[in-house]
Design a protein around this nucleic acid. Sequence first.
DNA 1: CAAAAAAATTGTTTTATATCAATTTATTAT
DNA 2: ATAATAAATTGATATAAAACAATTTTTTTG
Lengths: 231, 231
Amino acid sequence: MVNKLQHASNCADCNCKVSIFKNLSPLELALINSSRFQVSYKAGEIIFKQGTPSPYFVCVTSGLAKIYIEGYGKNLILALIKPVDYIFGPGIYVDNRHYYSASAVEDCQACLVDVAIFKKLIRENPDFAEEFIKRVSLQSIFNFDQVISLTQKQMHGRIADVIFYLSDKIYCQNPFELTISRQDLADLSGMSKESAIRILKEFKEEGILTLSGNTLEVLNPKQLRQISETG
Amino acid sequence: MVNKLQHASNCADCNCKVSIFKNLSPLELALINSSRFQVSYKAGEIIFKQGTPSPYFVCVTSGLAKIYIEGYGKNLILALIKPVDYIFGPGIYVDNRHYYSASAVEDCQACLVDVAIFKKLIRENPDFAEEFIKRVSLQSIFNFDQVISLTQKQMHGRIADVIFYLSDKIYCQNPFELTISRQDLADLSGMSKESAIRILKEFKEEGILTLSGNTLEVLNPKQLRQISETG
DNA sequence: CAAAAAAATTGTTTTATATCAATTTATTAT
DNA sequence: ATAATAAATTGATATAAAACAATTTTTTTG
C-alpha cells in the first residue's frame, strides 16, 4: 500500500522513467507529472473502446492489460501490456481515435497523461521523438511476426508462439501462473477456444508442458521451438 | 524520355515534394536532392531483401513495386507501392535491417536517399517528424485492417477486400489493368493461388465482375462490399 | 454454504481451404 | 514462327479447423 502511494507520488520516482521517458529532462518529466492522474481498473473492465476519442497516453503501472481489435464476431489480441509499459495507438497522429480496445486482464493501475503534452514533447525533444519512433517500430516488427504466425502457421505452431510470448515476454519465468483465460489464449492465436484447449491437451500428453490449475510449465522448450518453426 | 530526365533532375521539381516532403524547406529539399541517386528496376527484380542492411530511403517514382514478408514457405504482400510513395521499414530505427523484401512488379524507377540524412531531418524539423509519424501510423492502421481481414474473414471476403484495395487505392479506376499475377493476388489475400482463381471465377459467374485478359471491371460494387462485410 | 453463472473441457459433425495432379493458355527465347 | 518455359485454370481428394452440443469444473454471488 505504501508502495502504491510512493509509486503514484511522482513520475520522477516512478520506474516509468527508465522506459520511454528516459530521454526527458527533469523539467519535462515534471510537466508530464503535473498533468498526470491515476486510475484503477478491476479485472475485466474496459480501459477504452475502439472508435472512441483518444485524449490520453495510458501508462500501465501495475497489473496486466490487453489491447485487442474487435473484428468480425471475434477479437484479436494484439498484445498484453504489463508494467511499466504504455498504450499509445496509431490514431493519435491521424484522427485522435482508438483503433483498438483495451481492457484490464488482471486488476490494473494506470497513469493517464494528456496527449497534447506528449505531442509537445515529441516536437521539442528529438531524443524523445526518436525513442518514440523506435518503440513504434518495434511494435510494427512484433506485429509482422504475429501476422506471419497467424496466417502461415497451423494451430500447433501458433499456440507454441503464444506460449513463448507468455513465458519470455509477459510473465518472464518458466513455471508461470496463467492469468489470462482460454478465450484470451484463443484470441491471441486466432483460433476457437476449443481448438486452443485441445492443443494444450496434446502438448501435455506429449510431455512438452504441464498445466495444472493455471500453472503452466514448459518442460521441453526445444520441441516447442521445433513446433513453432515447422508451422 | 524527356519526362524522365526532368523527373530525375531535382527533388524540388519532382512531385515527391507534394507528399511526405511537403514540410521541408527548399534548403532541406536540396540536401535530400544532393545525396539522391536514381535506379531502374525491371519487372520481377528485387529492390532489397528481408534481413539485409537498410541504408536507403526508397522513393518509387514510376512503375509498381510490392513489399512482402517471406514467411514459412510462402509470401505475404504487405502493400503495393506506386508513385509517388516511399518504402521505409521499421528496421531503420531499430537495427538498420529490412524486415520485409521489396521487388518491382512493373518496371520501376526509384530514388534512393541516405537514411542518415532522413534521420537528421526528422530530428531537426518537427513538422517533418510529425508527418513521418503520421504516415507510419496510417501504415499501422492499414495493417490492422489487413490482419483482421486475413484472420477473421473467409476467402470470398478477403478477395473482395483485395479487389477494393486494387481498384480504390492502387489503380484508382474501375475497369483496370491487373498488372500483378494471380500468385500476387493470393499472397495479398493469404490463400493458395488456386483458391484465388476459383473465387474470381465465382465472382465472374455471379456477375459481380468481368475479367477478360487482365482487365478487371467491378460491375456490382455493392454486392462486393456486402461480401467483404459478411466475411 | 448453496445456488447460479461462467469458464473449461470433451466428443461429434461439418466445412472451408490446401494440396496434388493434369491441362490449357500465355509468354519468352531461339 | 516455333519451341520451350512459365503462368493460369480446372477437377479431385485430403485435412485442418470451426461449429455445435453436451458435460464438467470453477468461480461468483446471495
